[in-house]
């Protein structure tokens, strides 16, 4: 079973969002997403300072099986990326919500309100069967 922290927000495309305060959020892919992908071997991260629209592809995670886009859950500016993933992308498999974070973004106030909470995301997973 996938592990789902209750304090995070989620998207139907399997990203998670953690509110760090001061308009900054951390973004990663969910445990369910890493499980579907299998062993991760490469992560392509955006340039710091890039302005992105909601639902724009901002990163690519590649497993032994396939390459998969990661989408910006919300519009904003990329303010940090997880450089450690360059040498050890497999930490996404072992710690999707912790050391496996992908990037941080600066977003508008209130932009998080439309994101899925843990129950809504669980419902998405249940629908996928």
């Amino acid at each position: 079973m996938s592990n789902l922290p209750a304090d995070l927000k989620y998207t139907a495309s399997h990203e998670w969002i953690r509110d760090e305060g001061d308009g900054v959020v951390t973004i990663g892919i969910t445990d369910h997403a890493q499980e579907l992908l299998g062993d991760l071997v490469y992560v392509e991260l955006p340039e710091i300072g890039r302005e992105v629209d909601a639902e724009e592809a901002i990163a690519v995670v590649e497993s032994v099986k396939a390459a998969s886009d990661v989408y910006a859950p919300i519009a904003g500016e990329v303010v940090a990326v997880n450089e450690a993933l360059s040498d050890s992308p497999e930490v996404i498999n072992s710690d999707a919500y912790g050391a496996g974070w992908l990037l941080k973004m600066k977003i508008e106030d209130g932009a998080l309100d439309d994101m899925l909470d843990v129950d809504a995301y669980q419902a998405v997973l249940d629908d996928e069967g």
């Binding site: 299998g38 062993d39 071997v41 032994v64 099986k65 497999e90 498999n93």
Partner: peptide, 8 residues
Amino acid sequence: PLNYGSQL
């Protein structure tokens, strides 16, 4: 079977 856990 695609894998039994970790393909790597």
